[in-house]
Design a protein around this nucleic acid. Sequence first.
DNA 1: CGTGATTTTGCACACCTATGCAAAATCACG
DNA 2: CGTGATTTTGCATAGGTGTGCAAAATCACG
Lengths: 337, 337
Amino acid sequence: MTRRVTSFDVAARAGVSQSAVSRVFSGASASKATVEKVREAAEALGYRPNVLARSLITGRSRIIGMVVAYLGNPFYPDALERFSREFQDEGYHTLVFTLPEGAEDTDTDRIIQQMLDHQVDGIVLASVGLGDALAARCEAAGIPVVLFNRGQEGSGLAQVTSANRVGGAKVADFLVAGGHTRIGHVAGWQGSSTGRDRTEGFVARLVELGQDCVGVEDGRYDHAEAVRVTDVLLDKGVDALFVGNDHMAFAVMDHLRCTLDLSVPNDVSVVGYDDVPMAAFAAYDLTTVRQPVGRMVKATVEALINQIEDKSAHAEVTEIDGPLILRGSARRPEGME
Amino acid sequence: MTRRVTSFDVAARAGVSQSAVSRVFSGASASKATVEKVREAAEALGYRPNVLARSLITGRSRIIGMVVAYLGNPFYPDALERFSREFQDEGYHTLVFTLPEGAEDTDTDRIIQQMLDHQVDGIVLASVGLGDALAARCEAAGIPVVLFNRGQEGSGLAQVTSANRVGGAKVADFLVAGGHTRIGHVAGWQGSSTGRDRTEGFVARLVELGQDCVGVEDGRYDHAEAVRVTDVLLDKGVDALFVGNDHMAFAVMDHLRCTLDLSVPNDVSVVGYDDVPMAAFAAYDLTTVRQPVGRMVKATVEALINQIEDKSAHAEVTEIDGPLILRGSARRPEGME
DNA sequence: CGTGATTTTGCACACCTATGCAAAATCACG
DNA sequence: CGTGATTTTGCATAGGTGTGCAAAATCACG
């Protein structure tokens, strides 16, 4: 294994000083002639700048810390893949941090320390399940943070979500227009902003339309829990269910159809939230509100990089609207294609 | 923003030299007394060793490069999450690299360069879709590599897969025992070892049992393609299908049931491979061969770390056996629970 | 206490690049 | 060509740690 080739080697061969080489590769000013000589020598020697040394001295690692929790919900892998691509295209890289199951404060602290240790330039918190404490600590550490698919009121943190309240309202409009009169809601986890917002927008619009929600039960973004509370709502005689995300909606549909032998949408209409790829599978054919992952990711990346490169850029709150995707799991209003 | 606290600061406060501090934190020998003093001073100042400086000098980053491609198949997010956890527990971290859609050689080169730039200590290639060229180049770069869920014969590379041939054979046994006489196969991508091995084990066992496979069609691990070739096989009058992975099996089942209005398993039995979480969903209730992700990941991590810490450790080829999980998508033999 | 064996410690340097500063070179222009 | 303005270049140092080497300290033991 031969020694690494350094900027000194290149300098020697090109007949210039090491700093000249450094300047060429870090984009500082240099004369045409030197740039040429250095490029040539570097090419010949196979030189590449040492990222570690560079980071050490500039204090910028070009690494983004990405904290994820439940990749079981297919919305997140999709997002993660896009994040990785986008960051790569911007010259950054993605260091993944996974929070253990029952994340304690001590775990949170460890994760943060590790991110600080690696001197990440920015952090994406990509999961509704992440506690407020984590976000607060990241902020306190002076590293730019963007919350993805998660809000936190009054925190002053940058955040990107879909228009959850509006989305909830769209579902209310749709179900009422479809002639449903006993509408229930398997809510997303009420400890999360997405869960609360969707519920809030949904219930508020129902009331505006002169209906009362027959029941709201927290499904906690969990399969088993969603099934359990579905039974509770069925006891109240619902004819339509708005479920807080697609992942739970699948469980609810399975339960209705396979366990209880009910028909969806004839006996009960089901509407989800997210529009994960699986929602389009024929077995579910789920009517749902689309979260525009692509645009959400782009907005997040942009916001984060802005903060990193221009420290004065202040935190922005972005909400991206998504359409209701009409499929077969919910009865459609007359004449609506 | 206050300056970082360095080993010199700690040394000053503890009344020792900087090297003493270094030794305490890198686990070298030191007297009880100094360890005590240094620990105390470090605690008081909130000192943490600078990972970059450390990596720069030791040449080891404690970062693992993880190359993934299609996170659309839920098998991989699951694996990724586990990898991240396992590596974290071992004091390593996971830098994610995503290959663009139509990965060209030039893309591959760029990824490799980026991994070299970051001086990753090891690499996990976690996707059947990754070309041989990538693996070869990683190897050539002198960095330990382990192929996850992907083999490459005669390459001398370490690899961890499930027992794909055996798994294929299990499916053959099961379908024949179930009384099927016209068995077809929607194969996994034949450009990948997993695809080929499953097919090989399956077909070989069928022949052993005195049956001929009615047809083998490459589904290329793709939804649309799987559906297309299913039609081809149906034209040949199959009464059972072994599908190369669960992801395709879902598409096949949707097509059979929802488009063609056939019954699974009454008209056609379907068996998959992977046992992703979704296979247990009631809508599919898919009989499938389980890939023991947990054990596969552990084996991969172990093999990689062995190679990293003991350069003399040579590449091992690990195959982990998984059971056939009986569910409702395929007719069961008499008396089999 | 004396002597040799062993452990602990500090010094100085290596790792590789970016950058402030002043000298050198180039340019513009009368 | 002369002079000042501007660009380019090299020198030297910083960034924070690990580690070989020799000196110092400790230990074992007669």
